[in-house]
């Protein structure tokens, strides 16, 4: 049952676009735990209204965590070793 709640990182595109000035789902993120590199859009999300946690598809480590509180965004990218963003004017 809970597995059917999985979404692709692509579903967080709108939220990430609220924080970053570039389209982020085509950015490449390297997992700080297992070293796998994937597009942000290919990470795994378990839909939760408490916050958005994007996990490594290879090892499930949280790479990006986002909570939107009343006034702020809280962003934790400590699980990611590196995020490579390629500015793409057509997809912003």
């Amino acid at each position: 049952m809970d597995a059917s709640r999985r979404l692709d990182g692509n579903a967080a595109a709108g939220l990430l676009r609220e924080i970053f000035c570039w389209e982020m789902t085509s950015a490449a993120v390297t997992c700080g735990n297992c070293g796998a590199t994937n597009a942000v859009g290919a990470l795994i999300i378990y839909a939760s209204p408490m916050g958005t946690v994007l996990r490594c598809p290879a090892c499930e480590q949280p790479l990006v965590r986002v909570v939107r509180t009343s006034n702020d965004y809280w962003l934790d990218i400590s699980g990611a070793r590196c995020i490579q963003v390629t500015p793409d004017t057509a997809a912003t």
């Binding site: 595109a13 859009g41 290919a42």
Partner: peptide
């Protein structure tokens, strides 16, 4: 409505 969103699944 807001968008278009998402550069990955295109």
């Amino acid at each position: 409505v807001r968008g278009p969103i998402g550069g990955y699944f295109t």
